[in-house]
Design a protein around this nucleic acid. Structure first.
Lengths: 352, 352
DNA sequence: CGACGCCGTGGGAACGTTACCGCAGCCAGT
DNA sequence: ACTGGCTGCGGTAACGTTCCCACGGCGTCG
């Protein structure tokens, strides 16, 4: 009589069935103190038989914690961000939280709208890859949040999670050297992007550490796309005079574009041109040859971001800026010049 | 005094500031009837100045609608499913709803756990790609839901959204014929999968319509992976005796694997072997040659599924089974035998 | 001129949960 | 034996919203 067929059972239904008050039922369900073992079991059994499930909405109203987390990324369709989302989702689920995923499409207005939706949904906090250069939207957000990705560096105050570009570049350059390529040409992103500067700086640091003049490196800019990489590679090939060309692309899409340009020029990769990328997107596995690249820890970033977010929500102090290491994936796009010329490989190799 | 600094403004704050009761404030905010234009404006202005945002949790409690939708897919990292998620997300946002995304990893237990999480989060409904063959988990779900993807066919009762396999196969076969390939070899998924049977059935139907004996088609099975496709292609090449080989793969990953096997056998695509895939994953653009394929409308599926879900939630009757058309993407993996031999292309072409 | 109805507004309950407070019973300590 | 504290439980308020009802004022119609 008290429970109509189509209503989902509440804690009151459980209490009635167990013959206790709802306070007692709540205590039993919360597993908290001051309750007889016997009544707790009775309540638990009652809950099981009526099929009770705690209403997160009501809990959220009462406690101020909704159990919802927001994730705002440029595009879930991008494999790197999907990987991030996956890590965040798994980590959130561990704590019984659910993830609201939004794609901003690199659009400031959309991002602002999504942040508004997250606020109204009363998320406990959010993980954000900010597209805007300004603080405004983030300031207005007013909830705990963690920045993720390379753009995080602009915002010194807030805690952030990103991949360790310096270590990644180090990894790539060391690998190039071990294969006999001393001074790779660079395909970088647009000058407007902050990531470009940091990448280039890391390369320079590596060069001076090895007594190489950074000025001898050929550099081309382009959009972070396949087409951008293709165009940049074409220009690079026009500048190249003789010998093996080695290219370090700042992004896998560009690296794939570069590979296409090489083929279109009637050259072979890796026989004539060696290419190494940066990102670790799955498509790199399916090119011919497979793309040697440095993979960002997308999933790890997502996981770590959720951990950081929980710290932020619970006001636990933490190392605020976290950089996760990248790892090298060797496939076939890099020629091994060191075995071909086991003497000092300096002269012929690494030539632009 | 009434609004402490750290509390988010409620409708009561708005009402106080506008000098009305919370009922009136609620009416004004809801844009509903029976309210003077003057007071409505006063309330709206008050809401704007205090920065009021409606609390979805409270609305959900009161109305029984949380404004949350669930999406359970095998893996957000899979580009096809990411595309689906993207479509669903955009469509949900149009109606002010938010999407909870969960990855089941093709794991029945995980799927069941996620469905539980969705119930506790009080989602209004869910879009599910069921991994289990049984009704059990879905029956227990107890909330409105829509099935999505090819596995939907098992559940006759519930409404579902999927891609139109028959039309896709038709599209592919017609294209093959137009290029002079009459009887392609088939690389299919495992016999255990329902999708395999439907794909094969559609091919057969096409064949009989063109007076071709389906029995002459060479068929290989494999896992829906690159490796599966590679192995299947190797076996196909062993069976091929002479002339051009044409392959219709039931899945882009397998098609890419087949392409690799061709190269590893010292043959050329498309000169020696023509390949057409099915799915439309982005990686197909980056192979060499680019993979000609039939693209499933991932995004459209997501959008349509959300529409269907809203119909389900609001008990609006609807066409319960929806199949969306696929489209052909021509890239370079298919040789044009029709111009090379403009007479009847039947004899030499399409040979296994 | 009186009654009825409508319009704009305010009061209060309810959604499901948890936290606080109070109360009865019991055990131990003075 | 009385008191003080502790244990186990019940009652109730509160989270923020919406909906229903009631109530005063005013216009209109009989």
């Amino acid at each position: 009589m008290s429970s109509s067929r189509n209503r989902r059972p509440t804690i009151i239904d459980v209490a009635e069935r167990a013959g206790v008050s709802k306070s007692t039922a709540a205590r039993a369900l919360a597993g908290s103190s001051n309750i007889t073992e016997e009544t707790r079991e009775r309540v638990l059994k009652a809950a099981a038989t009526v099929g009770y499930e705690r209403n997160h909405l009501a809990v959220g109203m009462r406690s101020g914690r909704s159990g919802l987390l927001g994730l705002v990324i440029p595009d879930i369709t991008n494999p790197f961000w999907a990987d991030v989302a996956r890590g965040a989702q798994d980590k959130a689920a561990e704590s019984g939280a659910s993830l609201l995923v939004f794609s901003s499409d690199w659009d400031v207005a959309k991002e602002a709208a999504h942040l508004g939706a997250l606020r109204r949904a009363r998320v406990d906090g959010a993980i954000i890859n900010p597209v805007a250069d300004s603080f405004d939207d983030l300031d207005r957000f007013g909830l705990p949040f963690v920045l993720i990705g390379s753009s995080a560096e602009r915002f010194a105050e807030t805690s952030s999670v990103g991949s360790d570009i310096a270590q990644a570049v180090q990894l790539g350059m060391d690998h190039l050297v071990s294969k006999g390529h001393l001074a790779p040409s660079l395909i970088l992103g647009p000058k407007s992007r902050l990531a470009r500067a940091r990448f280039l700086r890391s390369v320079h640091e590596h060069c001076v550490a090895r007594d190489i003049d950074p000025a001898i490196l050929a550099v081309e800019d382009g959009e972070y796309t396949v087409e951008g990489g293709r165009i940049a590679m074409r220009r690079l090939l026009e500048r190249a005079h003789v010998g093996h060309v080695c290219v370090f692309a700042a992004n896998d899409m560009m690296a794939i574009g570069a590979m296409m340009a090489v083929r279109e020029a009637g050259l072979l990769c890796p026989e004539d041109v060696s290419i190494i990328g940066f990102d670790g997107i799955p498509s790199g596995e399916f090119t011919w040859p497979g793309l040697t690249t440095i993979a960002k820890p997308g999933r790890g970033l997502g996981e770590r971001a959720v951990e950081g977010l929980f710290n932020e929500i619970e006001h636990r102090p933490e190392h605020r800026r976290i950089y996760l290491p990248c790892r090298l994936i060797e496939r076939g796009s890099l020629a091994d010049l060191s075995t071909a010329a086991p003497q000092r490989a300096a002269a012929g190799a690494g030539r632009v």
